[in-house]
Design a protein around this nucleic acid. Structure first.
Length: 200
DNA sequence: CCATGGATTATG
DNA sequence: ATAATCCATGGT
């Protein structure tokens, strides 16, 4: 049996991200199978990470024990979730970027009326939160001991071939391929070179 | 491509 | 106190 993502050190957050592919996350009547994730570390030079400048009120959860959710709000209207990895005191987390709905399909469709195809239901970090009906209230809750609204369970089958590439929305550290996805999976969002935030 | 929208962060 | 930024989505 391979080492559990839960027991890996913070330095190996990228490997934890790979291991998390294929795991299933259940909350509020819907289950998704994780198909796309990104690793973030507070260690060393990682300006893309929320934790790279040390602990703050927002990112405190990233410095805590593994197996909890770090939920943050982005662009004022969307929520994204990370699963905290590594040891306490060394920030590391895996952003949940996309998943495939494998249970509770009817509920998921109701929660995501904008999704035209079932593969679009959780094809994005905020979409994934929407189908699971999770928000800021899930921050700092456990996904491994059943005490929180979401529960993580091992894959029913092997994840398959894993591909890697640069993270989404990260302009610096493009040399670090810390975005991982299940190769060929239809729920994985297509990579955008980078968000053209600046004029030009 | 463009609008939306609010918390977070840095700065004074 | 203010201003710029931000791991996005949906519709044009």
């Amino acid at each position: 049996m391979t080492t559990s993502w839960l027991e890996l050190p913070s330095e190996a957050v990228d490997e934890a991200a790979r291991l998390l592919l294929g795991w299933r996350l259940t909350a509020n009547g819907v289950t998704v199978r994780l198909t796309e994730v990104e690793a973030y570390s507070g260690l060393g030079e990682d300006p893309a990470s929320h934790a790279h400048r040390g602990p703050t009120n927002r990112n405190a959860v990233m410095f805590g024990p593994a197996g909890r959710l770090y939920v943050y709000q982005i662009y004022g209207m969307h929520f994204c979730a990370n699963i905290v990895c590594g040891e306490s005191g060394k920030a590391a987390a895996v952003l949940l970027r996309a998943g495939a709905v494998v249970d509770g399909l009817e509920i998921a469709r109701q929660r995501r009326p904008a999704a035209r195809r079932d593969t679009d239901l959780a094809a994005g970090p905020a979409k994934l939160m929407q189908v699971l009906a999770l928000d800021k209230g899930a921050n700092d809750t456990s996904v491994i001991d059943g005490t929180g609204p979401a529960t993580l369970s091992p894959p029913a089958e092997p994840a398959g071939t894993i591909a890697a590439g640069p993270r989404v929305g990260v302009t610096s550290a493009h040399d670090v391929p810390w975005r991982f996805w299940i190769s060929g999976d239809p729920t994985v969002s297509v990579y955008r070179r980078h968000t053209p935030r600046r004029s030009g």
